[in-house]
Design a protein around this nucleic acid. Structure first.
Length: 688
DNA sequence: TCGAATGAAAA
DNA sequence: TTTTCATTCGA
């Protein structure tokens, strides 16, 4: 089953261990941000050690292992997945199920098709999730750079950066070196140390805290959170518990007054958008930890270039650097406090869970099954917070929480996740094991587990469409796209000439791409012939001259921006995207008079061939595909002579509102039937 | 290790 | 404007 999709990273990674897996970046985990166990077991162990160290030592950095150094250096968090990737992750298995023989590439194509067809609303869900994910990530890793840039830090494996090790959490900061980066970070060892100091469990806690909030908030907002919410709350408690260090505790005490959780705020906002921005500007400025994640290496070029120099983190600058650990602690403290006050609970509002919880008493229901203990525990969660005020209590709380979790089944789930390894955030066994050794307490683990679960739940909550559905939809779209192969577009690519080699690669890629497409398309065609699109969403988006889009229901009349032919936005063009720059690619659309611009036409025409369905079909179905990407679709229309509308996914919503205003000019969109009659309207991206 | 997709960020 | 890299995993 689905398992296919699932992945199976683990095995591979393990092997890789020797080499680095492809991914140099560690997978980012909300909690651990850095520690992902991507690497081999050994690495994992190292990680553990690191963790331990950090945790235990907290301040100290001890280089544990040399290896670790490398490791550490590499330890960059992996960049967060974007909406599409989330979508792929969620649906790849389905695709594979349907098309067992299909390789990932093929699956990816299909997914792309699905994505293209995906209802904007649905897409938005993924987008939101991605955003949330990213925001959280950024918070966790303030200085994170997607691309190390030039960097290259990449260090060759050989060299080790002793510092790196230390850093572990810290900065991997950027080793980077790049000027830009470097500037930001202080770089020096000292820095690392600082970070390091923070690190350890504090950091971990921080992350946890952060995530808890985020998820909680989100969960609350979303339905997903039912149980989760509740759990989350607990998790908060856990956090408290974790803060075992007397210091922390003391802090707590001090902080008693802390108002609400700052994090909370942020988290809430996260949904909106502020996050990243806030982050950067955030008071703490935490830049510090940037992990330069990606820096990775990957690229060959870079590697060669290399790195050595890079290594050093030289960056001196660092004005920002720092993120004070304190701040982190503070946040934790706040959280704790809040928890103690019970605020947390409020926030969480785990109400959903409340049902159950509601019982705590009610819990019995669930618990019936379970041992009596469970019940007690259930209650505890809520109660605990208060209790937790002091250390002792905390511990007790932990225990209680732990129990609770167990009783609730969290534990199980956690394990399950681990086993699966598919969780959105992978908890590697390492972590688990580490937990034992490591300062992380079971509760911590649970907490993590919860978070993960929450995350996963969210992830799971994302709609997952049945292949059939997509097939139907996609079929139409797909066909359109795939056909393109016939003519080699241009390879577009304007490559700057960057390196000839690159060009070659590019060229090669393109060629292959085409090949695949052809194959694929053919295959696809075979497979699905049906064109039923019934499922398709009926909403289309029209791009306004100003670039905004207006959503329209196929059935209902709409306004179009201007009668004039517009250009299409640069929106990406399906698979072709990579081939040609969006901007370069012209989508053609039909103007009112039905003409299509030549260039555009070419591309489209290519596609046309294959596309079986005409607009009618679509229209009939009530759908108008306008995939931005699939210019082809347009083309198809062209061929069909039917008008096509382009739907813009994401932005549409927002734009829509505005557009509406503009509607005056807009031309109403014809219904299917109308459409037929009407000449197709092209929408141009450019205002011109 | 590449590739296939999309998307976000960086150079 | 172009390049990287995030996920997945067969080839």
């Amino acid at each position: 089953m689905k398992g296919g999709g699932g992945g199976k990273e683990p095995p591979v990674e393990g092997e890789v261990s020797g080499k680095r897996p492809k991914r140099k970046c560690l997978q980012w985990h909300p909690l651990l941000a850095k520690k992902a166990p991507d690497f081999s077991e050994e690495e994992e162990e190292e990680d553990e050690e690191e963790l331990e160290k950090s945790g235990a030592q907290e301040g100290e950095c001890v280089g544990i292992e040399d290896d670790s150094e490398e490791y550490s250096s590499e330890q960059r968090a992996r960049r967060p997945m974007n909406a599409f990737l989330l979508f792929c992750k969620r649906h790849r298995s389905l695709v594979r199920q349907e098309h067992p023989r299909l390789d990932n590439r093929g699956a990816t194509k299909i997914l792309a098709d699905w994505w293209a067809v995906l209802d904007p609303k649905e897409k938005q869900k993924y987008t939101d999730m991605a955003k949330e994910y990213k925001d959280a990530f950024m918070k966790a890793n303030p200085g994170y750079k997607w691309c190390p840039a030039t960097n290259k830090p990449v260090k060759s494996p050989s060299h080790s950066v002793s510092n790196a090790r230390k850093k572990v959490w810290a900065l991997p900061s950027n080793p980077s070196k790049d000027s830009s980066v470097a500037k930001k970070h202080p770089k020096t060892d000292s820095t690392p140390q600082l970070n390091f100091a923070m690190a350890g469990r504090n950091k971990t806690l921080k992350h946890i805290h952060y995530w808890s909030k985020i998820w909680i908030s989100s969960s609350s907002s979303q339905a997903g959170g039912t149980d989760v919410a509740k759990h989350t709350g607990k998790s908060a408690l856990f956090q408290l518990a974790e803060v075992r260090p007397p210091e922390d505790l003391s802090v707590l005490n001090n902080r008693a007054d802390a108002p609400e959780l700052p994090l909370t705020t942020s988290s809430s906002s996260s949904s909106s958008s502020s996050t990243s921005g806030s982050t950067s500007s955030s008071p703490t400025d935490a830049t510090p930890s940037d992990l330069s994640p990606c820096k990775t290496l990957k690229k060959k070029k870079k590697k060669k270039e290399n790195k050595d120099s890079d290594e050093n983190p030289a960056s001196s600058k660092k004005a920002k650097k720092r993120h004070s650990p304190e701040s982190d602690l503070d946040s934790v403290m706040f959280t704790i406090e809040a928890v103690a006050k019970g605020a947390w609970g409020l926030e969480e509002t785990p109400r959903k869970k409340s049902h159950p919880s509601g019982s705590e008493n009610d819990s019995e229901k669930d618990t019936d099954t379970q041992p009596p203990q469970t019940r007690q525990e259930d209650k505890e969660p809520e109660v605990k917070p208060e209790t937790c005020g002091s250390r002792k209590s905390e511990r007790s709380c932990k225990g209680a929480l732990y129990k609770t979790l167990v009783s609730e089944g969290m534990l199980t789930s956690l394990r399950a996740n681990v086993d699966r390894g598919n969780a959105l955030f992978h908890f590697s066994p390492t972590i688990l094991s580490s937990s034992q050794v490591y300062p992380l307490t079971q509760p911590d683990l649970y907490l993590l587990g919860k978070l993960e679960e929450e995350f996963e739940k969210k992830f799971n909550s994302l709609p997952q469409y049945s292949p059939l559905t997509f097939d139907k939809k996609s079929v139409a779209v797909t066909k359109k796209k795939k056909p393109s192969t016939s003519s080699p577009p241009e390879p577009p690519k304007t490559c700057k000439g960057s390196s000839s080699s690159q060009k070659k690669n590019l060229f090669h890629k393109i060629v292959n791409k085409y090949k695949h497409r052809k194959e694929k398309s053919s295959a696809a065609d075979k497979g699905d012939t049906s064109t039923a699109i019934s499922n398709c969403s009926d909403i289309s988006f029209i791009l306004c001259s100003d670039g905004k889009t207006v959503p329209v229901k196929s059935g209902s009349p709409c306004v179009s921006p201007s009668p004039e032919p517009q250009k299409f936005l640069d929106t990406p063009v399906g698979s072709q995207k990579r081939k040609a720059r969006k901007s370069k690619i012209t989508h053609l659309v039909r103007t009112a008079d039905g003409r299509v611009s030549p260039a555009e036409a070419e591309d489209k025409f290519k596609n046309q061939d294959e596309k079986p369905f005409t607009q009618e079909t679509l229209c009939n179905r009530g759908l108008c595909y306008n995939d931005p990407r699939s210019a082809e679709a347009d083309v198809a229309d062209a061929s069909g002579g039917l008008p096509a509308f382009f739907s813009l996914a994401a932005l549409a919503e927002v734009a829509a509102m505005e557009n509406v205003h503009r509607a005056q000019r807009a031309v109403s969109i014809p219904t299917e039937g109308q459409v037929k009659d009407m000449a197709p309207v092209m929408i141009s991206c450019a205002d011109q």
